[in-house]
Nucleic acid binder design. Structure first.
Length: 204
DNA sequence: TATCCGATGACCT
DNA sequence: GGTCATCGGATAG
């Protein structure tokens, strides 16, 4: 459906992770689903931090020990969402990459809030600083209302949850990104597979 | 069936 | 910088 996204997701996963910086994550909430959103609301954020998880030589990847009920969507075709529960209480959103059957994905670690900030605040807790609304994979899922119910959805199928290309304004595309080790893992911890926008105030 | 532990976040000092 | 909440998947027995 989205040619640019399909093309991006054909890149090797680390390159795709870097290229997703600047893209927008969009979630259109059902009308009436939230008190603060009586007519339906569009939540949107600009991706500023990602991590790549690979199918080979990556023990930190959920796909490292094969396909299970939990990680099945990681093996779907590129563009699907892989959403999982971590530490029994937080959710994390991944964008599936690599051809169908190959378990690779990009973890979306942080976005810069663009639209629907009031609803994000209501879902994250009143008084949450703007900078903290979507800084961290669990926080952004909380702000966007993402759960296992969104696991396996396709992000370029015109549904409520989708990715949209960077806006055509100066600075919308990420000019420069920083590369470093991934966060919160113990296995394959040294691999340089974390990407964040240089200078962003909204990264972890 | 039991045990271990994680791609985290909130709150404390 | 440390602690803890909280739970389901993976693995071992």
């Amino acid at each position: 459906v989205n040619r640019a996204l399909a093309q991006l997701l054909r890149l090797p996963t680390p390159k795709a992770a870097a290229a997703l910086l600047g893209w927008r994550l969009v979630h259109e909430l059902d009308s009436g689903a939230h008190a603060a959103a009586p007519r339906g609301v569009r939540l949107a954020g600009r991706i500023v931090e990602t991590e790549a998880y690979l199918a080979v030589d990556d023990d930190a990847s959920h796909s490292a020990r094969g396909r299970t009920a939990r990680n099945a969507s990681m093996f779907l075709a590129p563009g699907h969402a892989y959403v999982y529960l971590i530490y029994g209480m937080h959710h994390c959103l991944n964008v599936v990459t690599a051809p169908e059957g190959v378990g690779e994905a990009v973890l979306v670690r942080a976005v810069e809030p663009l639209e629907g900030v009031e609803v994000m605040e209501s879902q994250r807790g009143a008084g949450t600083p703007l900078r903290d609304l979507c800084r961290g994979p669990g926080r952004l899922c909380s702000a966007f209302g993402l759960t296992r119910a969104h696991d396996g959805l396709h992000l370029a199928a015109g549904g409520a949850l989708r990715l949209e290309p960077p806006a055509r304004r100066v600075g919308a595309c990420v000019q420069e990104h920083l590369v470093g080790p991934r966060i919160g893992i113990t296995k394959s911890a040294a691999l340089p597979l974390r990407f964040r926008e240089a200078g962003s105030l909204f990264t972890t």
